[in-house]
């Protein structure tokens, strides 16, 4: 008698499914707060179907690469949706390992009198499930990375607002650390706004920058130079005393740049440069 794991699984599908779901429940892998148990059941059933089909196809001689795809594909979409829904890696892992347990259990129940065959089949299933688990982990992480990337983009976008302070004066408060990709976004935003509004003075406020090292300073200097090339002047404001200290200690030369301690004094400078003045309106007293 030749052993045919796929036939056994086909026959015992319902039983495997039950064991699997039970395992999942025992492992807390079934997050009922994230998906309903019916949905989890459908997902499990579909995956099991795909797996059994694939095993049968393999028995019938289809090449491995072809037969593998539907299972893997299903698993990939599953992992990605789970990653987005906020499943932990442990839960996603437990989901697959509990299937492995269920499969192995069924095998051992069915093939009682042939230890060698049981071992071989178990080993095969083991390897297969391990491969699938690794693949699903990769996609799980990919799904997570996508989330992170999207958030990075969003942060970059919301964290560089260009504000029109006055006619001809722009302000750009920088919050957080300036790295080179961020600098590019800042520069692009600032320069295109300068063109759009025809402003001749831009104020970079770095009150929200936690620390200025030589790299950040270099990015700031670059931004100032680029603004100057456009034909506008760039003032850096919001320099805290400890930042002034580090800048001097690091030997960074900011002498070519107009720096002010507060946004107010930068604005005042800008008004002077544009030959404007702010006056208190005299109140009429009778």
């Amino acid at each position: 008698m030749t052993l045919d794991a796929s036939k056994i699984f086909q026959k015992k599908k319902q039983q495997i499914l039950e064991t699997w779901i039970k395992n999942q429940l025992a492992n807390d892998a079934l997050r009922e707060d994230l998906i309903s148990s019916e949905e989890a059941r459908t997902q499990s059933e579909e995956l099991l179907d795909a797996l059994v089909n694939r095993l049968r196809a393999e028995k019938e001689g289809a090449s491995l690469a072809d037969g593998f795809d539907p299972v893997l594909e299903y698993l990939e979409t599953l992992s990605i949706t789970r990653a987005r829904k906020g499943y932990s890696p442990r839960e996603t892992g437990a989901f697959l390992f509990s299937l492995k347990n269920a499969l192995l259990k069924t095998l051992s129940e069915e093939i009682k009198d042939d230890p060698k065959g049981l071992y071989e089949e178990s080993q095969k299933i083991n390897n297969l499930m391990d491969d699938l688990t690794i693949a699903s982990f990769e996609t799980f992480i990919k799904g997570r990375e996508e989330v992170i990337l999207r958030q990075t983009d969003e942060i970059a976008e919301i964290s560089t607002p260009v504000i029109r302070m006055w006619d001809g004066i722009l302000a750009l408060p920088i919050i957080g650390t300036l790295d080179s990709s961020r600098t590019q976004v800042v520069m692009e935003n600032l320069l295109s706004q300068i063109v759009e509004t025809g402003s001749s003075i831009a104020i970079l406020d770095i009150s929200g920058v936690p620390a200025v090292d030589s790299l950040v300073a270099q990015h700031l200097i670059k931004t100032v130079s680029a603004t100057r090339l456009m034909g506008a002047e760039c003032i850096i404001s919001g320099i805290r005393p400890e930042i002034a200290q580090t800048v001097v200690h690091l030997g960074i030369d900011l002498s070519g740049i107009v720096t002010k301690s507060s946004l107010a004094s930068a604005l005042n400078y800008a008004f002077t440069a544009l030959r404007m003045e702010v006056r208190k309106v005299r109140t009429e007293t009778k």
């Binding site: 590019q184 520069m187 692009e188 320069l191 295109s192 300068i194 063109v195 025809g198 402003s199 001749s200 670059k222 130079s225 680029a226 603004t227 100057r228 090339l229 456009m230 034909g231 506008a232």
Partner: peptide
């Protein structure tokens, strides 16, 4: 020199050529 495009300005700075001796204006 007037009307430099933002992308050009960024590139020049990155290139290491801030055109120090040249006066610029927006338009």
């Amino acid at each position: 020199v007037v009307g430099m495009q933002p992308a050009v300005a960024i590139t020049l700075v990155e290139l290491g050529l801030p055109l120090n001796g040249v006066r610029t204006a927006l338009n």
